[in-house]
Computed example of a mutant assay.
Amino acid sequence: MQRHGNALLTDVSLRVLPRQIVTLVGPNGAGKTTLVRVLLGLMSADRGAVRRRSGLRVGYVPQRFTPPPSLPMDVDGFLRLAGPSTEPQRKQRLADNGANDLLRRPLRALSGGEMQRVLLARAMLREPDLLVLDEPAQGLDVQGQQEFYALIARLRDASGCGVLLVSHDLHLVMAATDEVVCLERHVCCVGRPEDISVHPEYLRLFGRDLTGLAIYRHHHDHHHDLHGNIVPDAAEGRTAHD
């Protein structure tokens, strides 16, 4: 795929299966967002084909969304733009994301973490077979990233959807993924997180200093709400970070 004489993507092949989390990693300019746009049909590739299951429903969380400060819309109105839904359904999607109290909040009053959860709720209202997230934890602190990736895994488990995730948060997101695709305008390597983290191509792109980073697996008996407060998990012993 070329634009203005520059190669953006070459010989890229990517597959996401139901209930699978695939994480796309690569340096800036590697073509990650371009690939996502091609897969979503927002851009056309010069060659090749995108094959989607018949009737596939896709939910999309963009890299960033900043509503105009003057936009007179609350969260409920924004969620209604996703398509037909009832207020109980919209409330439930927010509750699934730990954002119970945001339904009547003005969009312009949301924090970064709150907005990401609202965008995720909007995507899940579509009951997607495939959830696509482009740098969804951008701008969140480490704790917020951990919570967000754990949330994505829980939504995948509950809905059975496949997940395509684009991220720079390598050592954190790798613990929440089944397969990693390393991209630098072409596919450099593909595999399980523990294998990719020591692959020569991965080390070439991200530096050998990353070999000192363990794949992050965080287990405890509580999680944090939108405001950072500790909330105990259910009595059956579910861990917030797996």
Rank of each mutant, 00 (worst) to 15 (best):
A49L: 06
R238Y: 10
P72Q: 10
D134R: 05
C188I: 15
P67G: 11
F65H: 11
I230E: 13
I152G: 03
H223M: 05
G59T: 02
H220V: 04
F148T: 01
E87S: 12
V38R: 08
T10D: 09
V231A: 07
M124R: 03
P106D: 02
C188A: 13
P62E: 10
Q143S: 14
H224T: 11
G48L: 05
P27E: 11
K91D: 10
V16G: 04
L107A: 04
P128D: 00
K32P: 00
H227G: 13
R93Q: 14
S54M: 13
A176F: 15
D209C: 06
R104M: 05
R126P: 01
R217F: 03
L56N: 04
L14C: 00
L24T: 04
H227T: 15
H220I: 01
P128K: 00
H4E: 15
L130T: 08
R90E: 08
D96S: 08
A153C: 07
V198I: 14
M43F: 09
M115D: 01
N6A: 14
H186M: 04
N229K: 15
D96T: 02
A158S: 14
F78L: 11
N28D: 11
G228H: 08
P27L: 13
V132S: 08
L213H: 13
S111N: 07
G41V: 07
E147Q: 14
R57M: 04
D233N: 15
D233A: 09
N100C: 05
L205K: 00
L125H: 05
P136W: 11
P84T: 12
H168C: 07
V181H: 04
R52D: 13
A7M: 14
R93F: 09
L56I: 12
V190F: 09
F148S: 02
Y216I: 07
R156E: 07
I21D: 00
A158G: 09
E184T: 02
L94H: 09
Q116S: 13
Q63E: 15
V16I: 14
P193T: 06
Q143E: 13
R126Y: 01
L39Y: 03
R52M: 14
E179I: 09
P27K: 14
H171F: 10
L71S: 08
R192D: 06
R93P: 05
L81C: 13
